[in-house]
Design a protein around this nucleic acid. Structure first.
Length: 823
DNA sequence: ACTGAGACTTAGCACACGACCA
DNA sequence: TGGTCGTGTGCTAAGTCTCAGT
């Protein structure tokens, strides 16, 4: 049986093969013949050889993208969003119909106790009714899960007998007391090493949970800055001013020019204006000018910048003091950090891609809408004065502390624990353990789906093909989406137009995935897969039709879990990411500097990010930066060319004995050199003038005799001398060689300059290849942290180089492995 | 079998902040 | 000292997947 080590995802294989030549950054730059340099110049000229271009052809040949034609665009691609110019924004007709009216802003609600212990359920109240249902559900769920868990543990209970509540509560009390004692006695080192003592029953998440509720955003403080409407100032009432301010705050972003955003915003803005006492003249968006409000906030920001350190510190401390109360909870007697304890403030929805509801007003959440989850004996935190909580529940089968409904998408929001908490840590660890479990049966699963690719049952054939794509190209499952969401797809929702077939066995994927990030890849696939895709696209199917019409994520996942308990589509992404990473890390050079090892690590990280299509917006100043580094390289080359010419003047025989050493600089145009020299001359004069100014200033402030004309002239003469020397050298073609300079010294200088050129070039390539790739997502979510911990041990690299403090804290559970640990 | 709600993970963006450099 | 740049952090949108209800 072949080992699964060989089963590196295709995407990665292609990527490695085509990319290997870029990798030689540590070799000494002998000259421009170097692959690196050749590559760079080819890239710079926009005509990189096909073999230099990774398999991922990001853009069609006729793409209108006229950014720097650099390698990474071809490799990882810039972010391509539905609303990019290259892809016209699909505009949905909007009726401005949102659901704010459903929000029970002032529901007279009372706390609802939902444990088996005591129940006081108010009637008639919709929300309370919902809570009641939830409470019943919670109880059922807990009983069911408990039974499931005990049978999984091999317990004899098979029937959902009603739990003996008193006994259970007694157990809980004993457990809590024990935990409190442990916490007391362990005050010095109270780190809870849950990973050493894993309880496999994950259905009950906690026994006690206490917290102080949630932090609400401050009330709106009106600023009184007018909106300019049709050229006239309009001072708005606070409620309307607040909404106008939300728009002013996104004025510098792309949202502000997105027509859907504008339309949704304005529709909600008009609604708010309609509730104002005084009628306003505001009727049309295009007559609104929010810039005065934006300027006001710009000034405020500036004012903040001007504040003294003490003032800023005081503000920060005050803020921290308020937050401290809400930032932590007590979970099973231990203090744990809460993630998002703040209720989301009202704002305009910033949807990604072509979101039909982007720009809609997310209304302010009131305490009456917030339900808290606490243990049954926990004191209920006081709601803000004059308010009531939307409800109190006691559900130990869930991990959230508070929840509310958001009005735009009608989605549920939660307050969860922070990433470094035991609950999140455990589920993180379980996730990676599940992926490792997949490793043990991946060969079998691959054999099975390869066989099924030929199945005559269409459903099985489609399922196998989808599995192949998910496994090999790290596609997401692709659930169905609603009408009022951006049109993005995953594997199961791919449509006819997302897949182009190029005979004999190439497939070009082009679709918008999660967050409307474009997935554009041309890959080679198994011949059978190619044939299958062709048949799935066969007539009468046309653009807009689903590719996998017999498949849903539900049926796919049901099948997957029959192959391995708990296996779902997303496990493949985790598995392939971690596996790829571990394989790539094996290339880490031994007996080299830490810096080179770190480079190898980051490369492996990048492979995973490319595999998972983790992209980021190209930094705004990226092109500037590239140009600057490129000029820096030319400047060094200019110095090297001078050194070479000096060497030739000293010893003309070098040309024959070592022609390579004094070969002309390949891409150093004369025109550029002249410009550069002129800029150097200019700088010399500027420097001289500055020196004179300083001298005069000094005399002014410290007294003493004024500098003589001669002294001033001497300074200026130096610049003049420099200019004359450059001009004369230019005219004669001969350089002025300093007397002390020897042949040896020049050779040394040339070598050093060459090294600097190599370093600058690899820095440039590295930066450019990374411009559109986000490494952090894979590091945080897909790569088993134990691989990193083991690698650091094995290669004697400090962990701090790879994981920042936050990640070290999040992955505490993974840090104890030894150097030989394998994923 | 289908649907929608609920609970949780994954994701990129904006911004603050501090290091570094000229 | 001011500008640039990279990194860390907070934020919240957008996925995945399960389960209850029908």
């Amino acid at each position: 049986m072949s080992d699964s080590e060989d089963n590196v995802p295709l995407a990665q294989k292609f990527h490695n093969d085509s990319n290997s030549s870029v990798r030689s950054t540590s070799a000494v730059d002998s000259d421009e013949d170097m692959p690196l340099a050749a590559k760079l110049s080819a890239i710079n000229n926009g005509n990189a050889a096909p073999q230099d271009i990774a398999y991922i052809k990001q853009e069609p040949a006729d793409s209108s993208d006229d950014e720097l034609p650099l390698a990474v665009k071809l490799k990882a691609g810039g972010i391509n969003r539905a609303n990019d110019a290259s892809m016209p924004l699909k505009q949905e007709p909007l009726d401005g119909n949102d659901s704010d009216s459903d929000v029970p802003l002032s529901t007279p609600s009372s706390s609802v106790e939902s444990t088996s212990k005591k129940r006081k359920l108010p009637k008639a109240d919709r929300q309370a009714d919902k809570l009641k249902k939830r409470a019943v559900k919670t109880e059922k769920k807990a009983v069911k899960k408990e039974n499931g868990a005990s049978s999984r543990r091999g317990g004899g209970r098979s029937k959902a007998d009603k739990m003996d509540v008193d006994v259970k509560e007694e157990e809980v009390k004993v457990k809590v007391k024990k935990q409190e004692e442990e916490a007391d006695g362990d005050a010095e080192d109270n780190e809870h090493r849950w990973w050493l003592n894993q309880d496999r029953d994950a259905s009950v998440k906690w026994t006690t949970l206490r917290h102080n509720g949630v932090l609400f955003p401050p009330e709106y403080k009106p600023h009184g800055v007018p909106l300019i409407y049709d050229g006239k100032e309009v001072v708005l009432e606070p409620a309307a001013e607040e909404v106008a301010t939300f728009f002013a705050q996104v004025l510098h972003m792309d949202h502000a020019t997105n027509p859907v955003f504008q339309k949704n915003f304005f529709s909600d803005f008009l609604k708010i204006l309609g509730t104002c006492k005084k009628p306003t003249p505001i009727k049309r968006f295009d007559k609104c000018d929010f810039s005065r409000i934006a300027e006001y906030f710009e000034q405020e920001k500036e004012r903040r910048k001007q504040m003294s350190k003490e003032e800023l510190k005081a503000i920060k401390e005050e803020k921290l003091a308020i937050e401290e109360k809400y930032a932590y909870c007590m979970l099973d007697g231990r203090k744990e950090k809460i993630g998002n304890f703040r209720i989301e403030p009202p704002s305009l929805l910033r949807g990604r891609g072509a979101h039909p509801k982007t720009g809609c007003l997310k209304s302010r959440i009131m305490p009456e809408q917030v339900i808290l989850n606490l243990d049954a004996d926990a004191p209920v935190p006081p709601p803000p004065p004059g308010h009531q909580w939307g409800g109190i529940i006691h559900d130990p089968t869930v991990t959230w502390l508070a929840t509310w409904k958001e009005n735009v998408n009608n989605s549920t929001k939660y307050v969860f624990l922070a990433a470094n908490s035991s609950i999140k840590g455990q589920s993180d660890m379980n996730k990676f353990e599940k992926a490792r479990e997949l490793k043990t049966c991946i060969d079998k699963i691959r054999r099975e789906y390869t066989r099924d690719l030929k199945s005559r049952t269409l459903q099985i054939c489609q399922r196998a093909t989808a599995m192949y794509l998910i496994d090999r190209f790290a596609l997401r499952a692709g659930n169905e989406k609603g009408e009022d969401e951006a049109d993005t797809v995953g594997c199961c929702t791919l449509r006819y137009e997302h897949v182009n077939l190029v005979p004999p066995n190439r497939v070009c994927f082009d679709f918008l995935g999660k967050d409307s990030i474009r997935y554009y890849r041309e890959v080679e696939v198994d011949t059978q897969v190619w044939k299958n895709l062709k048949s799935f696209k066969a007539s009468p199917k046309k653009s807009g039709d689903p590719l996998f019409d017999q498949l849903t994520t539900a049926t796919l996942n049901r099948h997957l879990s029959s192959l391995m308990p708990g296996l779902t589509a997303k496990v493949f992404r985790t598995y392939n990411a971690s596996h790829t990473f571990e394989k790539e890390l094996e290339k880490t050079p031994r007996n080299t500097s830490v810096a080179e090892k770190v480079l190898a690590y980051n490369r492996a990280n990048r492979e995973v990010a490319v595999l998972c299509n983790h992209q980021r917006a190209v930094p705004k100043r990226h092109d500037d930066q590239m140009l600057r580094v490129s000029n820096k390289i030319k400047a060094i080359k200019y110095l090297r060319w001078r050194a070479k010419r000096e060497l030739l003047q000293l010893n003309p025989k070098v040309k024959k004995s070592n022609p390579k050493l004094v070969a002309p600089e390949s891409d150093l145009e004369e025109e550029w050199c002249i410009e550069y020299e002129d800029s150097l001359i200019k700088k010399e004069y500027e420097k001289a003038n500055l020196k004179v100014e300083k001298l005069k200033e000094k005399v002014k402030s410290e007294g003493g005799p004024a500098p003589t004309d001669g002294a001033v002239q001497a300074i200026l003469d130096k610049a003049k001398e420099y200019e004359e020397r450059v001009l004369s050298e230019r005219k004669s073609g001969q350089l002025e060689v300093k007397r002390a300079v020897t042949e040896e010294k020049l050779k040394e200088a040339i070598a050093k300059l060459s090294e600097r050129i190599v370093a600058a070039k690899s820095e440039m390539i590295d930066k450019d290849e990374n411009k559109a790739t986000a490494l952090s997502t894979s590091k945080i979510n897909y790569i088993d942290p134990r691989i990193t911990a083991a690698w650091c041990r094995a290669h004697d690299v400090p962990l701090t180089k790879m994981f920042n403090a936050t990640l070290r804290d999040k992955f505490r559970w993974a840090m104890d492995v030894d150097a030989t640990w394998k994923f």
